[in-house]
Design a protein around this nucleic acid. Structure first.
Lengths: 237, 237
DNA sequence: TTACATATTGTAAATAATACACTATAAAGC
DNA sequence: GCTTTATAGTGTATTATTTACAATATGTAA
């Protein structure tokens, strides 16, 4: 067993937000693109919206603050899902230098508390700042991207978490859809999250049992084929 | 919104273990009883097995180490379930003083990462040390106990977590039972966790579908009535 | 021998899940 | 206006799962 000399009362705690959106076809995730100036040129990569918490700040509040600061998103229901505390997760010198420059302080080790959120993809995202900008990226392609720290791992765990979570709390899925949606959109979203291909008729049958899903007298517009009926989700007591 | 002056790079991170056991009738939890000497006499309360992590220690490793140090339990499968980071959770002066005395250091604020475990209640627990001792307590009565920090809240969340978790990963429940168990024990455990009263026949029918539960040619002994058959759980591929 | 306590067993009804293929409607191209 | 194309929308039969419900069996103790 390793021997440990010091109790850790001078490490840092951060929050990271794994925010999912749905573009009608595929699941997307909100990432911060960053540019790092280096001796041998510029280095570009992506990271989760996240930062260190303040000394007198609740971690949940911190998650909301950080998400707002980096993306402009406000009042997003964030759910804590896991904390990551491998000492090696901050071992990449590039990440550490960037962070120390950003927070103007020496950072030794960071334990991060990760949150997930499901939001509508058409929400307005903050405009680019000097060296970072927030954007949506297809979750499927994330494995090919350059990601900071252990953020690729955190995203995978976040994805597992929502998959599991939506099995139990089915209504949460509507947070990813526009207020008025078609049953095809809903089905494609189900299938995107659960990586399956569900039967159209059985899906409609099951879904329409839910009294919270109400049929509207409106139809989608601007499609080059028969327009689908719109539905909305209303939470009933 | 509150204004925050300092990034937190000098706070502490702890781990706390919510360890459940089953005594055949009720769900129990492993708590540390502690005695605090004060000017006006002795103060007794209980706390979760937990402590600060070391500076170069993984949080999962820390949870195992701390549980071993405080209870003597080794190789317990611990699952992280939530982190608690309200700055007010360490606002009780008595808790803070006790902790600072224990770790020989000044502590300002602690974010704790909580873990759950399900274990057999007959596992040997470490003998009492000078001012603390680990013991089993009925979960139902925990709300009437004196508990340190926000440990009452953490236990409630831990209980919700295992309830939810056992719905998905049903085999985990066997970690709470002796290797050989009766179907009544299993049913009482189910009911204790889920706060329900299941039908004897339907329960047996459903349970015995599981090929991993195998019927033994042995019966319980020393009961003042018809002895029940024993079963064991074997993980099959 | 009886009282007591818990173990053990089956069936019918209701509900939920699955498999499966054709018609309807709107826009676009000709 | 006719055809093509693309997606919307619909029903039924089969199987699997869940639920409700009560009498007999077997051991100890009085």
């Amino acid at each position: 067993m390793t021997t440990h000399k010091n109790r850790a009362y001078n490490l840092s705690v951060s929050v990271d937000c794994v925010v999912f959106g749905f573009d009608g076809k595929e699941l997307n995730i909100l990432l911060i693109e960053r540019s790092i100036e280096e001796n041998d040129g510029q280095y570009n990569d992506k990271k989760l919206p996240g930062s260190l918490i303040y000394m007198d700040e609740d971690i949940n509040e911190a998650a909301h603050r950080v998400l707002f600061e980096l993306t402009g998103l406000k009042n997003i229901p964030l759910s804590q899902f896991h904390s990551f505390g491998d000492p090696q997760r901050t071992s990449n010198i590039r990440d550490l230098h960037w962070l120390e420059k950003t927070v103007h302080a020496k950072v030794e080790r960071i334990v991060t508390v990760a949150y997930v959120a499901l939001i509508k993809i058409n929400r307005k995202i903050k405009l680019n700042s000097n060296d970072t900008s927030a954007n949506w990226f297809n979750v499927k392609n994330v494995c090919n991207e350059n990601l900071a720290f252990d953020h690729k791992f955190i995203i995978e765990r976040g994805l597992e978490y929502i998959k599991h979570w939506l099995k139990v709390e089915k209504h949460l899925i509507f947070k990813l859809l526009p207020r008025k949606f078609t049953l095809s959109q809903l089905r494609l979203l189900y299938d995107a999250i659960n990586q399956e291909h569900s039967d159209v008729r059985n899906f409609r049958k099951k879904i329409l049992q839910d009294q919270n899903i109400v049929c509207l007298d409106e139809f989608e517009e601007g499609v080059p084929h028969r327009a689908a009926r719109l539905y909305k989700y209303v939470q009933k007591t």
